[in-house]
Design a protein around this nucleic acid. Structure first.
Lengths: 161, 161
DNA sequence: CAAGATTGAGTAGTCAATCTTC
DNA sequence: GAAGATTGACTACTCAATCTTG
């Protein structure tokens, strides 16, 4: 066993800053979203995905894959949102195991009302504070991290088979 | 009401990348932490803060402030961790309203066992994928966002008074 | 048996109400 | 009344078990 390499000053500044921001920023955005539109961040993500899909409907597993959610999380979430009238479950004609999740008229109205305010918040607390160069670095960095995470997922799948 | 400015390509790439990474990365780190050390991310944060404090003990409100947690969240968390023997509540002699949270011997052993593996994960999925220049940009960017969030907190306080 | 999906149990976080002490 | 802290109710996420269809 080799000694673990602890983080040096530069690394710690980036990591602690990121961890700190992550908690604070999402708390603020979710709080505002709930206060202004009655939606959780999870509600918002589902509605955005559905509203961008053709016909306002997606296969449940596609929706889950798009958000990288566990299937049980999606199922619970859809149950709660259906109870509130934001989405509707529909049967899948081509595969009887599957199901569709569809945006209702009310769900569409809610996301259209919520989106402008949320985007303003994203600008206010993130985008407008950063230069174009910083935005590009962040995009590249997140892509690198996501690529590593994706690699390991496929590696795990390979081991399991 | 002016038209909301939606995000352009560069902005959307950074924001969606960040949001995507946020969910994936914390899920992976928390999953590994729980699997390898039996700790949630919240457990880990509490233990790290206590272990860095003189005497392994902090006033509850200081601990909450350090992590930017709501006081009720900290209280619930300490209750759960005390039940598991990781921390101990202690009375505060100088202010009878307050309380201390102290690391137990077991809590110290657990965090010392967990930290090396967690740091390795942080390197594996984040630090080692980024250049020093990228780390500096991220540190600056997170600092700018946190500064804006802090501004608004103090502004809210001013309004309330 | 694998894929798509649901359910229930257990754990975590938020909000509002409350309690005690300053 | 405000500060420090706790509690209970409610909502949300995870994991394991289950069910049905391919």
């Amino acid at each position: 066993m080799s000694e673990p390499r602890w983080l040096d000053d530069r690394e710690a500044r980036a990591w602690r800053g990121y961890e700190h921001m992550r908690g604070q920023l999402s708390a603020r955005l979710e709080h505002n979203l709930l206060r202004d539109a009655g939606l959780s961040g999870a509600d918002y993500a589902v509605l955005v995905n559905l509203s961008e899909a053709p016909g306002g409907r997606m296969r449940a597993f596609e929706l889950g894959r798009a958000m990288h959610w566990e299937k049980s999380r999606l199922s619970h979430q859809v149950t709660r949102m259906a109870r509130r009238g934001l989405v509707r479950r529909e049967v899948c004609p081509s595969d009887a195991r599957g199901s569709f999740v569809a945006l209702t008229d009310e769900g569409l109205a809610v996301i259209e009302a919520a989106a402008p305010g949320h985007v303003e918040d994203v600008r206010r607390y993130f985008i407008d504070l950063l230069t174009p160069a910083q935005l590009d670095v962040i995009a590249d960095a997140t892509a690198a991290v996501l690529a590593r995470l994706a690699e390991e997922d496929t590696a795990d799948d390979a081991c399991a088979s």
